[in-house]
Nucleic acid binder design. Structure first.
Lengths: 208, 208
DNA sequence: ACACTTATATACATACTCGTATCTGGATGC
DNA sequence: GCATCCAGATACGAGTATGTATATAAGTGT
């Protein structure tokens, strides 16, 4: 095991990253307000000194966490959108992606809700969150218009339909959190499937 | 202003209620973890002594808050279900009810999310929350089956359809929180309307 | 009106949290 | 190999939170 010797910059970056990771875990377990700076530093394997060397305060770390997460999710959505060629493709990719996330659903969702609440109380963080939502929504809307709308009339404004599909995800995941056994891991995809089918004009059903 | 002289029991109950109300406000504003026992007592117009005389600790108060809220929401859902005679009725009642809640949507929703997170981290509180969800879902399912299903085939298992409608509420409200201007106050009802219309078999459209 | 009960306030001990200021040892450059 | 630098540890002070133990004032029964 030839462990590379880190430069200062690298080492500093590593510390920062470890602190962020520790914060992610703790925020998930105990919430943002329930986690102290000391606990974060300790879980990352440092003391508070390291923390304050890297962040002005907890707020700043939360902001960075939100930014990181937004970035990675925006990337995921873009990727999904880019790779889906057919309508069936999209559902398949979505299913696959959901399966992976389902492994750590409580963690993923708890952190999401924490961040939503944080944004509610710190409006300056709102645009960051909004970015992800808007992209996802518009991406869904495009898909709806292209895959379904072109075959006939939609049952409502495509913007509303997209909003429905997008919002459904949060709602279903919350329900799945509350009833892990009762609700299948694939609900989200199944539900989207049902919706899109029911909106597809009966007229021309392409062979797929 | 003839202020009635309270008996001990009444006075005690009043204190308890005031503490709960203060906690509700503070939890909404700053979260459960962000509110100290002292702040709660102070906002209610007491000191910590009164608090610890009425509750063992904050956890116990949260439990009671959750219970109160569950009770009142279960009552509301039951009421809605009981009063809605026709399908149009239900949408109308729902619209009215949503309008009222929309006045304090951020507060209402923030507290709901706080409680969901609390239940996630304190599984013993989970059944309490689950109660409300189940009732709402089954109530929706009944409505779907009666108002729509009897006229023909549904596009999917009514349980799934009900779950979709129910889950949609949380999801849409979260989106509305994040985009208060962009998303109309009536989204929830509008969305439900769209869904139910799109699921209604085209065959026989009763005059209503 | 008296004793007694109890809801709430006050006082106290303990622990936690934050942010800063200072120290130190290993990395870096000459 | 010596001087410098800086990431992170340690030490500190002020503030805050929790829970308990005790005091007090108001309510209650006789």
């Amino acid at each position: 095991m030839a462990r590379k010797r880190l430069t200062r910059e690298e080492s500093r970056a590593q510390t920062r990253e470890r602190l962020l990771e520790a914060a992610r875990e703790l925020f998930t377990e105990r919430g943002v307000n329930g986690s102290s700076v000391e606990q974060i530093a300790e879980r990352a394997g440092y003391t508070r000194g390291a923390f304050y060397g890297n962040f002005a305060d907890k707020q700043e770390l939360v902001a960075e966490l939100l930014e990181q997460r937004t970035r990675s999710e925006v990337a995921e959505v873009s990727d999904l959108q880019r790779r889906a060629e057919s309508f069936g493709d999209m559902l398949e990719l979505l299913r696959h992606w959901n399966r992976e996330r389902d492994q750590n659903l409580p963690d993923w969702m708890a952190l999401r809700l924490e961040l939503v609440l944080h944004a509610l109380r710190n409006p300056e963080a709102l645009p960051m969150l909004a970015q992800r939502e808007k992209l996802a929504r518009s991406s869904i809307q495009t898909a709806i218009e292209q895959r379904i709308g072109e075959h006939g009339a939609l049952p409502a404004d495509p913007a509303l339909l997209a909003l429905i599909v997008h919002a459904l995800e949060d709602g279903l995941l919350i329900q799945r959190l509350l009833f892990p056994d009762e609700i299948a891991g694939d609900v989200v995809v199944d539900a989207v499937d049902v919706l899109l089918r029911s909106w597809r004009p009966v007229a021309s059903d392409p062979p797929d």
